[in-house]
Simulated scan of single mutants.
Amino acid sequence: MLPSFLRLAAAGFLTLAVAGCTSTASTNTHVMAGAPVTETGGAMQTAFAPTGEAADQSHLAKPYFISFRARNAESYGHTFVVFGRLDQNGRVPYDAKGVLIPSMTEVAGLHPASTSVIPYMLGHVIPVPSETGASDGDTEKAYLLAEWTIPLTAAQYNELVPYIHKLQARSPVWNAVTYNCSAFVGTIARHMGFETPSPLHLPKDYINDLRKMNT
């Protein structure tokens, strides 16, 4: 029974992997948007809705960021977020090798808690234990397929980061259909007031559609 089950899961996984290889052949998409702060009745309120404001005009007032991202992978890719402090030029901080600077950034994303292919295959059928930090390739710019980065004020950032940490703590399982990496990212986006596409979209399409729906 178990070998037959594993063969079935493997077949499904390989089918999705082929679809993923096809989807990752197109051009990378990287976009940065502003996120204004509004005032109502003298009380400052955070407003995450993006504007067409250029990054170099807003980064001093908004020194932090969240970046919704999709990267390449051996299967169909991965959706995750990076958040932290912008560099002095108002950009997401990378070192000379194109790797995120760890002292200035943090990664959150939902994925099986293993480097083995078996949990990934099983996770297309049943929920499997998850991790919610960085996975291999998340910190490297070379693997990016799509990106939507939003500068944040200190007030916005200080509200958002504890929410992400709590979401990480209460996301113990991953399943390719019921709660996958895109669903995890979508939970964060909806908390910020954004509309979200179906989490069954391929990661690159998910991020591009998320941006299009909210800009």
Rank of each mutant, 00 (worst) to 15 (best):
A189I: 03
H201Y: 13
P172Y: 09
N158S: 14
A176W: 01
S182P: 02
P172W: 09
N180Q: 00
P199C: 03
F184W: 11
S171E: 06
I188P: 08
E159Y: 04
S182W: 00
L152N: 12
I150N: 10
H191W: 13
Y163H: 12
T196L: 03
A176P: 03
S198F: 03
W174A: 08
L200G: 10
T178E: 11
T153L: 03
T196M: 03
L200T: 08
S198R: 01
A154D: 15
S198H: 02
H165F: 03
Q168D: 12
P172L: 10
C181T: 01
A154W: 02
L160K: 13
V177G: 12
L152S: 10
A169S: 15
F194A: 11
L152W: 02
A155I: 00
A154G: 11
L160A: 14
Y157C: 07
N158I: 02
Y179V: 03
A155M: 00
A155V: 00
P199F: 00
A155H: 03
L152F: 04
H191C: 01
E195K: 11
I188K: 10
A169Q: 15
K166T: 15
E159I: 04
A154F: 04
V185Q: 10
Y179C: 05
I188W: 07
K166H: 13
P199Q: 07
I164R: 13
Y179Q: 11
Q156A: 10
V177M: 09
E159N: 13
M192A: 12
A154I: 06
N158Q: 14
T153G: 07
Q168T: 07
A183P: 05
I164K: 14
L200Q: 15
P197W: 00
Y157M: 05
G186V: 05
V161A: 14
Q156F: 00
V177K: 11
